[in-house]
């Protein structure tokens, strides 16, 4: 299997606090990996390091063989990495349609965009994405007026408009109802047919439903990686993560 993303010995230190401590990971093409771990394990920091929001203290992140560390956020996004944030980040006073059209970032040249008023390729993509995330009859609504679940879908839709090769989704089902979670699982499986996904998730039920590979993070390192049944049987994992969840449940 071809490696889409290769992370090697990644470190991130904030003063004395070692948030990512020698983390390595390989992600294979067209898989859906779930990244799990207790709070403070460094999952969101890892996302920040991959997408360029933070610069690693040391280590390397390669995407299709190209080094990403040191590139700006927009350059990394241009290479085909789309990111959905933990707290949904949509443009609240733009309509759903405008949110999606802005996200279609195949053309980033500002001078050409000044004279671009319509784009047939973009409209086709908009049509596809709308069908996928199911926001067809909400296109004219201001994004700030959407329900929580719809906002999550809109942001997934925005990431899809970028036509990314790798999607990083940070807690895509946070705050969703059962029905919405079911729909999201279905959506992610559909996306997986054409792209690679990394999903940060807390809900183990959801992880069990969607994950090809589960990666467990703990204290900024890779604790375990494998199929969900292997992970659930792993005593180390039970100790740091699943154990505590069972207790609280």
């Amino acid at each position: 299997m071809a490696g889409v993303l290769e992370i090697r010995d990644l470190h991130k230190r904030f003063d004395t606090h070692h948030v990512i401590n020698g983390f390595s990971l390989d992600v294979a093409e067209q898989t859906l990996s779930c990244l799990v771990g207790p709070n403070g394990a460094g999952k969101t920091t890892l996302m920040d390091l991959i997408t360029g929001r933070l610069k690693p203290t040391s280590g390397s992140v390669r995407f299709h063989g190209d080094e990403l560390t040191g590139l700006s956020e927009n350059d990394i996004a241009r290479r085909g990495l789309g990111r959905k944030f933990q707290i949904p980040a949509v443009f609240k006073d733009l309509s759903v349609r405008d949110n999606l059209t802005v996200a279609y970032s195949r053309h980033v040249n500002p001078f050409i965009n000044m004279i671009r008023f319509s784009d047939p390729a973009m409209n086709r993509r908009l049509e596809e994405v709308c069908t996928l995330v199911g926001l067809h009859n909400r296109l004219r609504v201001e994004a700030g007026l959407l329900s929580h679940g719809e906002t999550q879908w809109l942001e997934i839709g925005m990431v899809l408009m970028q036509e990314p090769r790798l999607l990083l989704l940070d807690e895509p089902i946070a705050g969703m109802t059962e029905g919405e979670i079911e729909k999201t699982a279905h959506l992610l499986r559909k996306i997986r047919r054409t792209a690679t996904l990394i999903v940060v998730e807390h809900d183990m039920g959801f992880v069990r439903e969607i994950a090809d590979v589960v990666t467990v993070m703990h204290m900024g390192t890779l604790l375990a990686q494998g199929r969900i049944d292997e992970i659930e049987a792993n005593p180390k994992v039970r100790d740091v993560y699943l154990g505590t969840e069972e207790e609280s449940a």
């Binding site: 996004a77 980040a89 802005v102």
Partner: peptide, 17 residues
Amino acid sequence: HALKNDPERVRFLGYNV
């Protein structure tokens, strides 16, 4: 207009804000 809402988000869409 979008970057007036959230410049960070626009950056992650691939635009040079």
